[in-house]
Amino acid sequence: MTFSESLEKSLYLTVEDGHKSLRFDSHSIQSAMSLDDPYSLALGYSQTMMGFLLFNPAPKHVLIVGLGGGSLPKYCYRYLPDCKVSTLEISENVIALRDEFLIPRDNERFTIIQTDAVDYITQGLAEADVIMLDAYDEEGLPAVLATESYYDHCRMALSEQGVLVINLWGTDPQLNIYIERLKRVFNGRVWFCRAFHSYNVIVFASNDENFKINWIKLLFLASRLESQHHVDLQGIVRRLRAGLPY
Rank of each mutant, 00 (worst) to 15 (best):
M1T: 08
S4K: 14
S6E: 07
S6Y: 02
L7N: 01
L7S: 01
L11C: 01
Y12Q: 02
L13G: 03
T14S: 04
T14R: 07
T14P: 01
K20V: 00
K20P: 00
R23G: 00
S28M: 02
S28F: 05
I29K: 04
S31H: 02
A32M: 04
M33F: 03
S34G: 06
S34Q: 12
S34L: 12
D36N: 14
D37F: 13
P38V: 03
G44H: 09
G44A: 11
Q47D: 07
T48S: 15
T48R: 09
M50A: 11
F52V: 05
L53N: 03
L54S: 05
F55Y: 15
F55L: 15
A58H: 14
A58I: 12
K60V: 07
H61C: 12
H61D: 13
G66W: 15
G66H: 15
G69K: 11
G69E: 10
G69Y: 09
S71C: 09
L72C: 03
K74Y: 00
C76E: 01
C76A: 15
Y79S: 07
Y79G: 00
Y79M: 10
Y79P: 02
P81T: 03
D82T: 13
S86N: 14
I90T: 09
S91C: 09
V94I: 15
L97P: 13
R98Q: 11
R98Y: 05
R98T: 12
E100N: 14
I103M: 04
P104M: 00
P104Y: 00
D106F: 03
N107A: 08
F110R: 07
F110N: 04
T111G: 00
I112T: 08
I112S: 02
I113D: 05
T115R: 08
A117T: 10
T122Q: 13
G124R: 09
L125H: 14
A126V: 10
E127D: 12
E127R: 14
D129L: 05
D129I: 06
Y136H: 07
Y136G: 09
E138D: 07
E139P: 00
L141H: 08
P142L: 05
A143N: 10
A146H: 08
A146I: 04
E148W: 08
D152Q: 14
H153P: 07
L158A: 12
E160M: 14
E160H: 15
Q161G: 12
V163A: 09
V163S: 13
V163I: 15
L168S: 04
T171I: 06
T171M: 11
P173C: 10
L175H: 06
N176P: 02
N176F: 06
I179D: 08
I179M: 05
I179E: 10
L182V: 02
N187R: 12
W191T: 06
F192K: 04
C193Q: 01
R194M: 08
F196W: 06
H197M: 06
H197N: 10
V201H: 02
I202S: 02
V203H: 01
A205C: 14
N207G: 11
F211R: 09
F211K: 12
K212Q: 11
I213C: 03
N214D: 13
I216W: 07
F220E: 13
F220A: 10
F220G: 02
F220C: 06
E226S: 10
S227Q: 11
Q228M: 11
Q228V: 03
I236A: 05
I236V: 13
L240R: 07
L240F: 09
G243A: 06
G243H: 06
P245G: 11
